[in-house]
């Protein structure tokens, strides 16, 4: 089994061809525009602290729902209406990791954030976005352990 989920691999390949800051921003804004918050059947505000992403100043929350065939569906909430980067990251994680084999999701490294957002991302922003990956990864590991 490949180490990285196929859809994530494709997305990282797309970002590897980005040559300018504005092109990267346009791609990420398009992703953020597709953000849909967690449905009410999964969670309603105020969201519980144990689903909150550490270090994320955009107040992101993550939920994982079991799916048939050893996979998970991920849901996100981003409480900061100006948290566009967190919304883009949520869409990326949902669209590339929901439904992927949990063994692969458990191996996804938080530093994909740097490949997507660029190495010059600020520390605060990088911490928060990597925190989102870490929660998704932890959910996959929990599923594997059960």
């Amino acid at each position: 089994m490949p180490e990285i989920p196929e859809r994530l691999k494709e997305l990282l390949a797309d970002f590897s061809f980005v040559t300018s800051r504005s092109e990267r921003a346009e791609l990420l804004i398009e992703l953020a525009d597709r953000f849909e918050p967690v449905p009410s059947r999964i969670a309603v505000p105020p969201y519980p602290e144990d689903h909150r992403v550490q270090y994320c100043e955009s107040e992101a929350y993550v939920w994982a729902e079991d799916q048939p065939g050893d996979s998970l569906k991920f849901y996100f909430a981003v409480e900061n209406p100006q948290g566009l980067s967190a919304m883009a990251m949520a869409v990326i994680l949902d669209e590339t990791l929901s439904g992927a084999p949990v063994e692969q999701v458990a191996q996804v490294a938080p530093d994909i954030v740097l490949k997507i957002f660029g190495n010059d991302i600020s520390m605060g922003k990088g911490q928060g976005l990597m925190g989102m990956v870490s929660v998704v990864q932890a959910e996959a590991r929990r599923r594997l352990a059960n």
Partner: peptide, 9 residues
């Protein structure tokens, strides 16, 4: 901005 996407959005 802190969020690098905001200005372009």
């Amino acid at each position: 901005d802190e969020d690098l996407l905001l200005y372009a959005s």
